[in-house]
Computed example of a mutant assay.
Amino acid sequence: MNRNRIRGMSLAAFACVLVGASFTANSVLGDYPHAGGQAIRYGLAFLLLLPLVGRGAATALRALTPRQWGRVALLAAVGMVGFNLAVLAAERTAEPAIPGVFVGCAPVVVAVLVPAVNGRRPTRPVLYGALLVAAGAFTVQGWGRTDLAGIAWSVGALLGEVGFAVLAVPVLKPLGPKLLSATVCCVAALESAVAGLLSDGTAMVRVPTGQESVALLWQAAVVTVVGFVCWYMGVQRIGAERATLFSGLIPVSAAMTAPLVATGSYGLAQGVGSALVGAGVALGSGVLRAPAPAVVAPVRGDGPLRADTPPDRQPVAGGRHGGEGYEGDGRPGDGRRGDARPGNVQGRDLATGGRYPARADRPGGGRSLG
Rank of each mutant, 00 (worst) to 15 (best):
T183I: 05
T183D: 05
A182H: 02
L175D: 04
C185D: 04
G196P: 01
L180N: 07
E161R: 08
L198Y: 00
K173P: 07
G163E: 07
V162Q: 01
L198K: 06
G160V: 10
S181E: 11
K173G: 14
L180S: 07
L172G: 08
T183G: 05
L167R: 04
L190R: 06
L198S: 05
L159R: 00
P170L: 12
V171Y: 02
A182P: 04
A168S: 15
L190F: 13
V187R: 01
V166M: 08
T183H: 01
L175T: 06
A189V: 06
S181G: 12
F164L: 15
A189N: 04
A195F: 06
L190H: 06
V162D: 03
P170V: 13
E191F: 00
A195Q: 01
L180D: 06
S181Q: 10
L179R: 04
L190A: 15
F164M: 14
A168P: 08
V187E: 03
A182Q: 09
L175E: 05
V187A: 09
L175I: 12
L197K: 07
V169S: 10
K178F: 13
G176A: 12
G160I: 11
V166N: 03
G163A: 12
F164Q: 13
A165V: 15
A168T: 12
A195Y: 02
K173M: 13
E161T: 15
L158S: 04
P174F: 07
V187N: 03
G196I: 02
E191Q: 15
P177Q: 13
